[in-house]
Design a protein around this nucleic acid. Structure first.
Length: 438
RNA sequence: GCCGCAGUAGCUCAGUUGGCUAGAGCGUACGACUGUUAAUCGUAAGGCCAUCGGUUCGAAUCCGUUCUGCGGCGCCA
């Protein structure tokens, strides 16, 4: 066995031509005739075509190499050649090939359906498509840490089991907890609000669970949210941080994953175009005006923007757009009223960020209410028991300060960056209302 | 919660107004082929037509039940 193996990416580096290299990986494709075998090798870095002739390999090895099924693990060695006939421009002329473990016939063939690929997701992860998405995903989560740490934020990890509802109880997953019942978190917010009195500026990237009965290509029951919470910060400033964050992540993906985006047919230039422009921040009331004047869509003031309205609105933009000051009535209890707004009714100090190309809401955030009485009233109105939130009210009793925060939907962002048809491809093992397997 | 679509070979799909022994491609097995691009050519194996019930001389096909999956709306990230 050779001492050191190269990756396929390394084997294609300049200056390697004519040298003998050792590679290892998995069989991606095989083709052949009675004198030649073409075997495309795959590893985490890419693919390369390997050519073996009966003369070079010997009758026995040649025959066995032709019998290797797709996804067999192999080690091999050969000479690097530049060859226009090979996919990718390089190929390896084999002088040795050994199966580490011969595979059984691989169930995924060229005829595929979304449903079948999800059923075989544990194997489909090996596909070039999933490989590219997972690489982008790694860049995205890494960039989130880099962004916040570079700005003096602390990572703060919230509990996943929670006794409280926070955004209305209907969408919580109940979990048996010893002899009791508890819920899976659907937001870190209440705990983040406790932590800012210690750390002032915090962020996290963690799983979130929502039992919404949403059967769409934009919803998951388990997804990852990148959240931030900051003391002494207003909602407009938080919205600017969100825009900076999404910009930063997009830059990093363009730097590190250009080839992955191209493989996914997610034209990088559309992201470059978005980065080259200012991203608009408009009010809800202005958005309604836009819909009426440019879209011919009349929306009654006070109604939340639905999917159709959001899509219609985003037809006019090729960058993400932040919408601020939604009507107070449609917002959760913790969002305070903006007194200075020019609007037909009370509006909240809150914002959403919509992605272009129909990818919908990627960020939702707000300033948090610091007024004890209005929090209590809002909780009662939602049917919550105020005494369950007494610990949360303590945060208002002891040195309350203005503060804001937001949550970024990691899979929604990845969907936009990678131009995915379905959010279920943005996470390795999607969990939806009907899928918990594999 | 509401609305729509689909279940036929391991996979992707045909299957006419109800009519003979249910078809193709891919994959698999065997064979042929010196440069293939998820090669090509030949042969073969492979089916409780999702389920239960009904109509009929006769049902993959028509009607109803149940189950499973997919998508849209609402809600959200």
């Amino acid at each position: 066995m050779p001492q050191s193996y190269l990756s396929i990416e390394q084997a294609k580096e300049a200056g390697r031509e004519g040298t003998v290299v050792d590679l290892r990986g998995w069989v991606y494709r095989t083709r052949g005739s009675n004198k030649l075998v073409f075997l495309v090798l795959r590893d985490s870095t890419g693919i390369i075509q390997c050519v073996g002739s009966k003369d070079d390999l010997g009758e026995e090895v040649f025959k066995r190499s032709k019998e290797l099924f797709i996804e067999s693990s192999v080690t091999l060695s050969g000479t690097v050649h530049k060859d226009e006939r090979a996919p990718g421009g390089f190929e390896l002329h084999l002088n040795r090939i050994e199966a580490v473990k011969a595979a059984e016939p691989f169930p995924i063939t060229k005829d595929q359906s979304e449903e079948f690929l999800r059923e075989k997701r544990h194997l489909w992860l090996r596909s070039r498509k999933m490989n590219a998405i997972l690489k982008v995903r790694s860049t995205v989560t890494g960039a989130i840490h880099e962004f916040f740490r570079g700005r003096g934020y602390y990572e703060f990890t919230p509990p996943i089991f929670t006794p409280n509802a926070c955004e209305g109880g209907s969408t919580l997953f109940e979990v048996k907890y010893y002899d009791d019942v508890i819920y899976l978190t659907q937001s870190w917010q209440l705990y983040a609000e406790a932590a800012i009195f210690s750390l002032e500026r915090i962020y996290d990237v963690s799983p979130t669970f929502r039992a919404e009965k949403s059967k769409t290509s934009r919803h998951l029951s388990e997804f990852w949210m990148a959240e931030m919470e900051a003391a002494w910060m207003g909602y407009r400033e938080a919205a600017k941080v969100a825009m900076d964050e999404v910009r930063f992540i997009t830059e990093r993906v363009l730097e590190r994953n250009r080839a992955d985006l191209e493989l996914l047919e997610a034209d990088p230039s559309r992201l470059e175009r978005a980065l080259s422009k200012e991203w608009p921040m408009i009010t809800y009331t202005e958005a309604l005006g836009l819909l009426r004047d440019r879209g011919g869509l009349e929306v009654e003031w006070g109604k939340d923007l639905r999917t159709i309205e959001e899509e219609k609105l985003m037809e006019h933009f090729d960058t993400p757009v932040v919408i601020i000051q939604y009507p107070k009535e449609v917002m959760a209890f913790y969002k305070p009223v903006e007194p200075d707004a020019e609007a037909p009714g009370p509006v909240a100090r809150c914002f959403d960020m919509l992605a272009p190309e129909g990818y919908g809401e990627i960020v939702g955030g707000s300033e948090r209410d610091t007024d004890m009485d209005s929090i209590k009233k809002a909780l009662e109105k939602q049917g919550e028991k105020v005494e369950n939130y007494d610990w949360y009210l303590d945060l208002r009793r002891y040195g309350s300060v203005p503060h804001s925060g937001y949550g970024l939907g990691v899979e929604r962002l990845i969907s936009w960056l990678c131009k995915l048809d379905n959010i279920k491809d943005a996470i390795p093992f999607p969990r939806t209302m009907t899928r918990t397997f594999p």
